[in-house]
């Protein structure tokens, strides 16, 4: 469990990135910080592994104030996945994944063995292990990044717009892969994105931020969609444009879902498959006829 207690971050140049932020991030769930640039979402994320220290307030992980912990040790216990993978260009894929376990004193052989298993976990062929990052595609690099994040089997996985730089098709693939992984591993995931669809798809808890690090709304995707706190939120989630206000239309052969602009959004199927995200992420993903 990660707890923010009235956290404020003011940078030396005077900009307030985060303003009096308090939140509990439950264990084994995915919390997504979503907002435009300048909303302080990355700053919030980077405070969790002390890449940024708050100006005031405190952050607890499982009850321990991280301000009292050694930053380097803390970071080694937390998985971190960043945009553009952040892999070391002069080390082979397998050595990149093995980096942190080796920093923690694991033998090179064991670390490499485990790294190979992790490549399996993230769906990468082992034949890529001896390549250099620059020889992989963007999507593959991102998978290596995730494997590295998981290498020390951390409880917490921080993901800073990890899929921001890959093309939409690969991104969708990686998103599904992450959902699968999270289903298997049950990490406490903190995810930063500026893409609301991605936030609703991946998040158990979604935090919508506005400029200056102020919280606009916190809740499950369903809660936010059903009851947007204000105009900012409804604009941000796209409810206003009618993109998400769906209604049933009878087309003779059966009922179909149609959005506010009259475009076909999907069909209504009996409830057995519906997960916790039903009606929000699921329908947002649903077959757009374009």
């Amino acid at each position: 469990m990660i707890e923010f207690h009235s956290v404020t971050k003011r940078f030396p140049d005077g900009t307030v990135a985060v303003d009096d932020f308090s939140l509990v991030l439950p264990s084994h769930k995915t919390t997504v910080f979503v907002g435009t640039s300048g909303s302080g979402k990355t700053t919030l994320l980077r405070m969790i592994n002390r890449m940024v220290d708050p100006t005031s307030g405190s952050i607890d992980i499982d009850g321990a104030d991280i301000g009292t912990l050694d930053p380097v040790k803390l970071r080694r216990s937390i998985g971190y996945v960043m945009q553009n993978s952040g892999l070391l260009p002069h080390r082979k894929v397998v050595d990149n994944v093995a980096t942190v376990p080796m920093l923690r004193g694991m033998s090179r052989k064991k670390a490499r063995d485990e790294a190979l298993q992790l490549l399996d976990t993230v769906g990468l062929d082992r034949s890529l292990a001896e390549r250099y990052p620059s020889q992989l595609s963007g999507g593959q690099q991102q998978r290596v990044g995730v494997a590295r994040g998981l290498a020390v089997n951390p409880n917490i996985l921080l993901m800073d717009e990890p899929f921001g730089a890959v093309d939409p098709i690969v991104r969708a693939e990686l998103q599904q892969e992450l959902l699968r992984l999270q289903h298997e591993l049950g990490k406490t995931v903190v995810f930063v994105t500026h893409d609301i669809d991605e936030a609703f798809l991946l998040g158990d808890q979604v935090v919508i931020l506005r400029t200056g690090g102020k919280v606009a709304q916190v809740g499950s995707p369903g809660e936010i969609l059903a009851n947007p706190a204000d105009d900012f939120v409804s604009t941000f989630v796209g409810a206003e444009r009618g993109k998400r206000s769906l209604h049933l239309e009878n087309h003779g052969a059966g009922d179909v879902l149609v959005d506010g602009d009259g475009r076909l959004a999907g069909v209504l199927v009996p409830g057995s498959k519906a997960g916790p995200l039903a009606g929000s992420g699921a329908s947002a993903q649903g077959g757009d006829p374009r």
């Binding site: 890449m51 960043m82 892999l87 070391l88 260009p89 590295r148």
Partner: peptide, 27 residues
């Protein structure tokens, strides 16, 4: 060296000395 590479090295838990020796010097 790409700042992001160094940032990532720090974020995964390399100490400053390790960043110098394992990342900055070879690159």
């Amino acid at each position: 060296i790409d700042r992001r590479t160094i940032d990532a090295a720090r974020a995964v838990g390399m100490s400053e000395v390790q960043i110098v020796r394992q990342v900055e010097v070879p690159l």
